[in-house]
């Protein structure tokens, strides 16, 4: 039996994976070269898979509590909740921007997930631990792939460096939110890894620590509504339709 707070935490983990997965999937067919197109589409697939695992478990927990005749499913949680019900961090819903911004976002966010999942592996709830254990292996590859791009572009041409610096300025205020309710050790480990990659990329960690926040409480940027409109359209227009 899980309380509302625990179920919201599960939905938060699921929503994070679904929304960043959906954003990455927007690159499918538009990647700069074929190999990178395939890579980012695979990363998107990993995230959607992680989202499915968390949604399936959240649905089981919700149904275990409720007397409702209409049980929750992974699909109802992904396709039939509205903007204010989504609990993802704001950084996951921001637009892809260019290749620099896309990769910096994946790097910053998957590094956070890497240390978070490491901790969740020991969660008192064995199913959360199992999903974290599985996801961690995938996220490790995401950190490495996106980190390589941050270095390559940050330490690249004048233009690639300028684009990466713009991405840092744009995304950094959204990183503070990640650590509002996680142990400080996760933030320290995250900052250590990010600092190491930024140094190699010739990028500077911004000194501005002001953080944009509210995603977990359902207060989103204007971008999430457009994502949901696209993602949920078919289920809303043709309820219960299946492939």
């Amino acid at each position: 039996m899980k309380n509302t707070e625990q179920i919201n935490q599960l939905l938060h983990l699921a929503d994070n994976a679904l929304i960043i997965g959906h954003r990455n999937s927007e690159w499918c067919g538009h990647g700069p070269i074929l190999e990178q197109d395939i890579a980012i589409s695979n990363i998107a697939l990993d995230y959607i898979g992680q989202a499915r695992n968390f949604y399936q478990y959240a649905a089981t927990c919700i149904n275990g509590n409720a007397t409702d005749t209409k049980p929750a499913t992974e699909d109802s949680l992904a396709y039939l909740r509205d903007v204010r019900d989504f609990k993802n961090h704001l950084i996951t819903e921001l637009p892809n921007g260019d290749w620099a911004q896309t990769n910096l976002r994946i790097f910053l966010f998957s590094t956070y997930q890497y240390f978070l999942y490491q901790q969740l592996q020991q969660d008192a709830d064995a199913q959360i631990g199992a999903i974290a254990e599985k996801s961690l292996k995938e996220v490790t590859y995401h950190v490495r792939w996106a980190g390589d791009w941050v270095i390559r572009l940050g330490d690249g041409t004048e233009e690639s460096k300028a684009r990466m610096m713009n991405a840092v300025d744009y995304l950094w205020p959204y990183t503070g939110e990640l650590f509002l309710d996680t142990p400080t050790s996760i933030q320290q480990q995250w900052l250590q890894k990010v600092t190491a990659v930024f140094e190699e990329a010739g990028l500077v960690i911004p000194t501005n620590t002001w953080a944009q926040k509210g995603g977990k409480e359902g207060n989103h940027t204007e971008h999430l509504g457009y994502i949901l409109a696209e993602m949920q359209y078919i289920q809303r227009a043709y309820p219960n339709s299946e492939w």
């Binding site: 190999e35 395939i38 890579a39 990363i43 697939l45 990993d46 590859y141 490495r144 792939w145």
Partner: peptide, 13 residues
């Protein structure tokens, strides 16, 4: 190594 992600997620190119 050409790409860390190949024709499927489990393979590299």
């Amino acid at each position: 190594l050409v790409s860390q992600f190949g024709s499927t997620a489990c393979k590299a190119l």
